Amino acid sequence: KLLSSIEQACDICRLKKLKCSKEKPKCAKCLKNNWECRYSPKTKRSPLTRAHLTEVESRLERLE
Rank of each mutant, 00 (worst) to 15 (best):
K1P: 15
L2G: 15
L2E: 15
L2C: 12
L2P: 15
L2R: 12
L3I: 13
L3V: 12
S4N: 10
S4W: 09
S4I: 14
S4K: 08
S5K: 09
S5T: 09
S5M: 12
S5F: 09
I6H: 11
I6G: 10
I6T: 12
I6V: 10
I6D: 06
E7S: 10
E7D: 11
E7C: 12
E7G: 10
E7K: 09
Q8D: 05
Q8F: 15
A9T: 04
A9G: 10
A9Q: 08
A9P: 04
C10L: 00
C10S: 00
C10Y: 04
C10R: 08
C10W: 00
D11A: 00
D11F: 01
D11V: 08
D11R: 02
I12D: 10
I12C: 12
C13T: 01
C13E: 06
C13H: 02
C13R: 05
R14T: 06
R14E: 01
R14N: 01
R14K: 09
R14S: 06
L15C: 12
K16Q: 01
K16I: 01
K16A: 02
K17T: 03
K17E: 00
K17F: 01
K17Q: 06
K17N: 07
K17G: 00
L18S: 11
L18R: 03
L18Q: 10
L18D: 01
K19P: 05
K19S: 06
K19L: 07
C20Y: 05
C20K: 05
C20R: 03
C20M: 07
C20I: 05
S21G: 06
K22W: 04
K22P: 05
K22D: 04
E23Q: 14
E23S: 13
E23R: 08
K24C: 11
K24V: 15
K24I: 15
K24D: 10
K24L: 14
K24G: 12
P25A: 02
P25T: 07
P25V: 03
P25D: 03
P25L: 03
K26M: 13
K26P: 03
C27W: 01
C27G: 01
C27T: 01
C27I: 02
C27Y: 01
A28Y: 11
A28V: 14
A28M: 14
K29P: 04
C30W: 08
C30R: 04
C30K: 00
C30M: 06
C30Y: 06
L31Y: 15
L31M: 14
L31H: 14
K32P: 00
K32L: 07
K32Q: 10
N33G: 12
N33W: 02
N34T: 14
N34Y: 11
N34G: 12
N34F: 14
W35F: 13
W35Q: 14
W35M: 12
E36P: 14
E36Q: 10
E36T: 12
E36K: 10
E36S: 14
C37S: 04
C37I: 03
R38E: 15
R38K: 12
R38Q: 13
Y39W: 07
Y39N: 03
Y39Q: 07
Y39S: 05
S40E: 05
S40K: 03
S40H: 02
S40L: 04
P41A: 08
P41L: 03
P41K: 06
P41D: 09
P41G: 08
K42H: 09
K42W: 06
T43E: 15
T43C: 12
T43F: 08
T43G: 09
T43I: 15
K44E: 05
K44F: 08
K44R: 12
K44P: 14
K44S: 06
R45N: 01
R45Y: 01
R45H: 03
R45V: 00
R45W: 02
R45Q: 09
S46A: 03
S46P: 10
S46N: 01
S46E: 02
S46R: 01
P47I: 02
P47C: 04
P47M: 04
P47N: 01
P47L: 02
L48V: 00
L48G: 07
T49R: 00
T49V: 07
T49F: 04
T49P: 01
T49C: 06
T49W: 05
T49A: 00
R50F: 00
R50I: 04
R50T: 05
R50M: 08
A51T: 06
A51K: 11
A51S: 09
A51I: 09
A51Q: 12
A51H: 11
H52R: 07
H52W: 09
H52G: 00
H52P: 01
H52T: 01
L53C: 10
L53T: 01
L53S: 02
T54E: 09
T54M: 08
T54Q: 11
E55N: 12
V56W: 04
V56G: 02
V56S: 01
V56N: 01
E57K: 01
E57Q: 06
S58D: 11
S58L: 13
S58Q: 15
S58G: 14
R59Y: 03
R59M: 07
R59Q: 11
L60Q: 03
L60Y: 10
L60K: 10
L60V: 15
E61V: 15
E61C: 14
E61G: 14
E61P: 02
R62S: 09
R62W: 05
R62V: 14
R62I: 13
R62P: 09
L63E: 03
E64A: 04
E64W: 06
E64Q: 14
E64S: 12
E64V: 10
E64I: 10
E64Y: 12
